[in-house]
Nucleic acid binder design. Structure first.
Lengths: 215, 215
DNA sequence: ACAGCGCGAGAACGACCGTTCTCACGAAGG
DNA sequence: CCTTCGTGAGAACGGTCGTTCTCGCGCTGT
């Protein structure tokens, strides 16, 4: 009952586990071949190059994670609770053994400018997430949905990054609480979000040794 | 005036630019050697292995970015403005040509579990950032500094991730505005931050196909 | 029975990896 | 002067990469 599934699926299953666990560049074709139990010839018939496997790996992760998130938030009644529930979902993900961060962020950081296809899939994944969050935010009847949605996206990705590095799932709840506050008190007292200075009283320059090399 | 600097510095300069632009694994020793204009023998005397170059690369980025951030926020008068000013600093960083995300996140995603030394440097960098943010938050006299600091860290890292993927610096300002709101209205109406449900009314299960493969 | 064909197993290939070794050269010391 | 030693340039090494090629086996049709 293992060798009855389609070879492409077996290859993608193997590639998914290996790419996610060790990174794309660290995993060779032979290793995927071994794990999938597929001949090299068949593997190259399903996917003409390693780049195609990587792209399919990310596209499938995109579909699966979108469906899983959708299924999870379907259990909540209101858009507000769905928005908060997304971070419970994040927490459950962080707790899974073998959690190693966002596959899209990892792939983008690893291949980045090198692969146009990867960039496109990663951008699409993040854009879809943002669109979904925006639709939920609009359902809450808040004053400036675009703005709040952008902030929630930042909290979402930030929670993933923090959880990845620290190894703790707490960031999900911290982010969720921040979302709750932002939902309650939409806009701050003063300015509205442009490039303006926060309060004034800036005294020294930004230049100096901080020129070209940073974080 | 270029060949008068120490060879280690020339090697690190070259490695820094190449590692950050193309990723660690994508850059070979020969390429660093060419860019640094140093003999292979000398390079291996300065750094006995590529892993040592990677570690030194991250350690120097850590020092430089900490100093640059410190220098920037020194221009603000109050802790509150310093916290908000950190996101102006982020925005300036995002706007630099060649910005390709956080070198620590990228290296961690790429090498991850594979390198103990890299993990330690990345964790140290993030922990230092968190400690600095916490010290500033404590200066604002807010009710629960640990909690707000954790949220700001999430917004900080989230802004970096979003800016990296979208290529736009807007995330810095969106995060800054969120920090402003959180500074104004510390705790939400109900619970204080535990694992408790936000409002209740959860109806369906979390299980199903969302088991093992996610974002 | 036999020609033909598709397939799996894995060798082969050229390129590149990180690292080490060779070797000629040039300055320093007696 | 000659010796010695550290150095730079780069060849060499073993290994791995992604990809292609070879070969022999087992099925199919008549």
């Amino acid at each position: 009952m293992d060798s009855e599934v389609e070879p492409d699926t077996r290859v993608l299953d193997a590639a998914d586990a290996l790419f996610y666990a060790h990174g794309v560049q660290a995993v060779g074709i032979d290793r995927i071949r071994d794990a999938a139990g597929v001949s090299l010839k068949r593997l190259y018939r399903c996917f003409p190059s390693k780049g195609d496997i990587v792209e399919a790996y990310l596209r499938r992760r995109d579909e699966i994670s979108r469906a899983a998130l959708e299924e999870h938030i379907a259990g909540y009644a209101t858009p507000r609770e769905q928005l908060l529930g997304m971070f419970e979902w994040l927490r459950a993900w962080f707790l899974q053994p073998g959690f190693r961060g966002c596959a899209f962020n990892n792939a983008f950081g690893e291949l980045g400018a090198g692969s146009e296809a990867v960039t496109e899939v990663v951008r699409g994944h993040k854009a879809a997430l943002r669109a979904r969050i925006l639709s939920l935010v609009e359902g809450t009847g808040v004053a400036d949905p675009e703005r709040l949605a952008a902030q929630i996206v930042v909290l979402f990705d930030g929670a993933i990054t923090v959880a990845t590095v620290t190894g703790s799932p707490d960031a999900a709840l911290q982010a969720r609480d921040a979302v709750a506050v932002l939902l309650e008190h939409g806009a701050p007292a003063g300015e509205s979000g442009g490039t303006g200075e926060p309060g004034g009283s800036r005294t020294s320059g930004t230049s100096g040794t901080s020129g070209s090399r940073d974080d």
